[in-house]
Amino acid sequence: MQLQSIHNDMLDGGISFCFTGYMSEEMLLGIGNTLKKKFEVDDLDRTTSMSMFSVFVEMVQNVIRYSAENQADDNDPAVIDLRYGILSIGKKDDRNFVACGNLVDKNDVARLSRNLSRLQEMDKKDLRRLFRESLKDEVPEGSKGAGVGFIEIARRAKHGFEFGFEAAEDDREFFTISAYL
């Protein structure tokens, strides 16, 4: 096992917490409680720690929901793969970050990319207005995958967020999103 080198790579990248595996509500609760304690120990201010927690919840629930939406059969290994993801939390260049990655269907890439780019261009005021509007409206057709959850992430990421896609097996791409707080 090369745990030592993985650990060193993580430290180099400023990662203080990392999870990879299948994402579930149980995992969300367990890691969530661990994170809350960690934020206390790190003496993060209340607003930052609540923002970090919120971004973490929205990111993980996005993965869980995305896999559920595409779930034809619980036992289909190809579908279970969609719950597979990576989550990391840390601090680099004086900015806290929460990052998450998971497999997505190739067909969803263009829409996700378009919607997230739109959020990236918005300032705090625009995001707030969009949040208020999206609460009232039913999620418009074609915006699945960039609902209130992503707006919440964009709002909390006071130093912005980045996202990207990389080719993966079959008709999948690996989607990553990193929020800086």
């Binding site: 609540m50 919120s54 929205e58 629930q61 609460l135 209130v148 959850g149 707006i151 919440e152």
Partner: peptide, 13 residues
């Protein structure tokens, strides 16, 4: 509430 997620926002409205 000390915290609620975006899904809960939709219910509150």
């Amino acid at each position: 509430l000390s915290y609620f997620n975006s899904g809960a926002s939709r219910i509150f409205i």
